[in-house]
Amino acid sequence: MVTEPFRLSIIDYLNAAPLNHGFKHGLGWEHFHLKFHYPSACADRLRSGEVDAGIVSSIEYLRIPDLLIVPGLCIASPKRVRSVVILSKVPPEQIRSLALDTSSRTSVVLGQLILRERYGVSPEITDMGPDLPAMLEAHDAALMIGDSAMRAPRQGLFVLDLAEEWHAWTGLPFVFALWLVRKNAPQLPVPGGVASFFHRSYEIGQAQLPAIIEEARRTIGWTKIELHEYLTENISYTLGEAERESLALFFEKAVRHGFAPEEKPLRFL
Rank of each mutant, 00 (worst) to 15 (best):
P92E: 01
I86F: 01
L67K: 10
Q94T: 10
R82D: 00
D101H: 13
S77V: 13
V70Y: 00
R82G: 00
P91M: 08
S88C: 05
A76G: 03
E93V: 10
S77L: 11
Q94N: 11
L98F: 01
R80I: 15
P91S: 07
P71H: 04
L68E: 13
K89E: 11
T102V: 15
V85F: 06
S103H: 12
S97M: 07
L68M: 13
R82A: 09
K79Q: 11
A76W: 00
P92C: 10
I95N: 00
L67E: 06
R80W: 12
R96T: 13
A99L: 02
S103I: 14
L67H: 06
P65C: 08
A99Q: 03
R96W: 05
K79L: 12
K89G: 13
K89A: 13
S77G: 10
S97A: 07
S103W: 09
S88F: 00
R96E: 04
L73R: 04
L87R: 10
D101L: 14
V70P: 03
E93F: 09
G72V: 13
I86D: 01
I75F: 08
Q94G: 05
S97K: 09
D101A: 12
D66R: 15
D101P: 11
C74M: 14
D66M: 14
V70H: 03
V84D: 00
R96N: 07
V90M: 05
L67S: 05
V70D: 02
I86A: 04
L100N: 03
V90P: 04
K79Y: 11
